[in-house]
Simulated assay, not measured.
Amino acid sequence: MTKMFKSAMLAATAAASFVAVPVLAADSSGATLVVDFDQVFQNSAAGRSATSQIQAKYQPLGAQRKAAFDSAVAAYNAQIDAVKKATKPGTQPQPTPALQQAGQRVQDAQDQAEQLNQEVNQVVGYVRSQIVDHARPVAEQIRAERKASVVISKDAALASDPQNDITAALTQRLDTAFPTASIVLPQQPAGAPAAAPANPKAPAGR
Rank of each mutant, 00 (worst) to 15 (best):
105 R>V: 03
14 A>R: 07
77 N>F: 02
71 S>D: 05
114 E>I: 08
42 Q>L: 11
33 L>S: 04
64 Q>H: 10
116 L>S: 05
76 Y>A: 12
52 S>V: 13
124 V>Q: 02
132 V>I: 14
91 T>P: 11
31 A>W: 03
17 S>C: 09
134 H>D: 11
19 V>C: 08
53 Q>S: 10
67 A>T: 01
30 G>E: 05
120 V>Y: 11
126 Y>K: 04
111 D>I: 03
15 A>S: 10
27 D>E: 09
24 L>D: 14
43 N>C: 11
113 A>N: 05
54 I>C: 02
101 Q>L: 10
139 A>V: 08
76 Y>P: 00
132 V>P: 02
130 Q>F: 08
21 V>G: 06
110 Q>R: 10
54 I>H: 04
110 Q>A: 15
36 D>P: 04
98 A>E: 11
59 Q>M: 10
115 Q>P: 07
109 A>T: 03
135 A>S: 14
97 P>Y: 05
33 L>H: 02
140 E>T: 13
136 R>P: 12
98 A>C: 06
15 A>H: 08
67 A>K: 01
91 T>V: 12
30 G>H: 02
129 S>G: 15
118 Q>N: 11
107 Q>W: 05
37 F>S: 03
18 F>E: 08
48 R>M: 05
131 I>Y: 01
37 F>C: 07
38 D>N: 13
102 A>S: 13
92 Q>G: 11
117 N>M: 14
57 K>V: 12
88 K>L: 15
41 F>W: 02
110 Q>K: 10
89 P>M: 04
48 R>C: 05
17 S>L: 04
109 A>H: 00
21 V>R: 07
128 R>Y: 08
97 P>C: 12
46 A>M: 09
21 V>W: 00
42 Q>F: 01
84 K>G: 05
16 A>C: 11
125 G>P: 07
64 Q>N: 15
53 Q>R: 11
88 K>E: 15
54 I>V: 12
30 G>K: 01
69 F>S: 04
131 I>R: 02
34 V>P: 02
42 Q>I: 07
86 A>Y: 06
28 S>H: 06
136 R>T: 15
96 T>G: 08
35 V>S: 06
62 G>T: 09
61 L>D: 03
131 I>D: 01
125 G>L: 04
47 G>S: 04
13 T>S: 07
98 A>S: 12
126 Y>F: 14
96 T>V: 05
108 D>F: 02
42 Q>C: 04
37 F>I: 07
102 A>E: 08
35 V>W: 07
84 K>F: 12
70 D>H: 01
64 Q>C: 13
62 G>C: 07
104 Q>K: 15
127 V>A: 01
65 R>G: 04
122 Q>T: 13
89 P>N: 13
14 A>C: 08
65 R>Y: 10
38 D>Q: 14
131 I>M: 06
97 P>L: 08
90 G>E: 14
90 G>H: 06
73 V>G: 01
131 I>F: 07
138 V>T: 04
